[in-house]
Simulated scan of single mutants.
Amino acid sequence: MTDWHGEYPPSRPVRVEGGLTLRSKRGDIARTWWSRRFIEVLESFGMGGRLERGRRYARSGQVMSLSLSTSLVVALVMGSRPEPYRARIGVRKFGDDDWRRIEHALADRAVFAAKLLAGEMPPEIEEVFGELGLTLFPRSLRELSMDCTCPDWEVPCKHLAATCYLLAESFDTDPFEILAWRGRSREDLLDRLRELRDPIPAADESAEDALPRLEDSLDSFWLRPKVPAVPEPEEPVARHPDAILDQLDPLTVLGHSITEELRPLYRRIADA
C-alpha cells in the first residue's frame, strides 16, 4: 500500500546475522585514490543522492554476499522482505585486442607491475589507459548497467548503492579487482607481464641442424671417441708476493711510505 504521494511507506529491513559490513563506520568510505575515483565516477553520473541511501545498509551488514567476476558484480542484499534481493552491477569489459595493447603498455614500465604486486594502483595507470583511448573506470552510463530484484524503480536503489560501497571497499583491499572487473584476472595479467618483460629466447634451429642424426651415427656409435691431445701446461709466470702493492696509489703518512713499509711483511707471509 502506498501513501497519497504514491510512494512506498518506509519499512524496516530484516536484520542480518553475519552480513558484510564496511570497515568505515562514519565519514568517507573509500580510503585509496582508486576506490575514491570509483565513487566519484558514480556520483558524476548523477547518483550521488541515491548512493547515500545505501550507506546505512552497507554499514549495518544488510549485504549478505558479494561476488566479482569478469564484468559483473552480484550481491545478495536483505531488505524488508523475507528473501534477499539480488543486486547486479555490470561494466563493459575490454576485448582481447584491447588487453594485448594494455599489457604491452604496462610491461614497458616496470614500476606498474612492482606497485600492483605490492597492492597499490599507480595513479599514472589512468594515463596509460588514456593513451590507448581507453578508461580504467566507466566513462558513461552506457558502459555501466545496474539492476535489482526489489520493487524500487529508481537506479541505484539502496540495495545497489550498498553494493557500490562494498565494491569500492573491496577495491581498497585489492586493486586487481578493478582490472578483473574489466576482464583480466590477477594471475593472467601478471603471467602475461612476466612473459613480455622476460621473453624466453627461441631455440637456435641452425645449432640443431648441425647435430648429427642418429641413423648417420650407427657405425661409429660403439667406437671409442677420439680424445684431443692435452697441451703441455705453460710454465707459470713468477709473481712477487708484494706485487699487489704496486697496484695501489702511493700512501704517505708523516713522510713515511706506508706501501714500502708493507713490502717486508708481505714477503715474510709468502715465505711462511
Rank of each mutant, 00 (worst) to 15 (best):
F112W: 01
L132E: 04
R55T: 04
M121I: 02
L223N: 13
S35F: 01
R139F: 14
S140L: 02
G183F: 03
A243E: 12
V73D: 05
I29R: 03
A203D: 01
L141H: 10
F38T: 00
L214F: 11
E234W: 02
E143D: 09
R100A: 05
A58G: 04
S140K: 06
L42R: 02
W4G: 15
V227L: 15
L251R: 07
H104V: 13
K115C: 08
G183E: 05
R213Y: 09
I244E: 12
P264V: 07
G119L: 00
R267G: 06
L167Y: 01
V128L: 09
W222I: 08
L223Y: 11
A110K: 13
E177I: 02
A107Q: 03
E234V: 14
D209V: 14
Y8V: 13
A105K: 02
D242V: 05
V73M: 09
S185C: 07
D191K: 12
W33C: 04
K93V: 08
L214C: 05
L144A: 08
L136Y: 00
F38N: 01
G133F: 12
V237A: 13
G61I: 05
V77P: 03
R37E: 12
T135V: 04
E120T: 14
F221Y: 14
S60Q: 12
R224C: 10
L141R: 11
W99P: 00
R81H: 10
P156T: 02
R50C: 06
S145C: 02
E43I: 00
V230S: 09
C164F: 01
T173A: 03
D191Q: 13
R101C: 06
D174W: 00
D108I: 08
Y165Q: 11
A270R: 14
V14A: 15
D242S: 15
R213D: 04
S71C: 15
D198S: 09
H104C: 02
A210H: 07
D3S: 14
W222C: 08
L51M: 06
E124T: 04
V14T: 14
G46E: 05
D108L: 11
F171E: 12
R186I: 00
I269L: 08
Q247K: 15
W153H: 10
A110F: 13
L20S: 03
D204E: 07
Y165E: 06
L132K: 03
R53A: 07
R213P: 01
D188M: 12
A270F: 11
L144M: 08
E143S: 05
H240V: 11
M121G: 10
A161P: 06
C148T: 08
A30C: 03
A238S: 11
T135Q: 06
V16C: 02
E232C: 06
R26Y: 03
R142G: 08
Q62E: 09
G6A: 05
R50A: 12
R100I: 12
E205H: 13
L218I: 12
R37L: 09
P82Q: 01
L167H: 00
T149I: 06
E187P: 10
S257H: 11
S69H: 07
V77K: 04
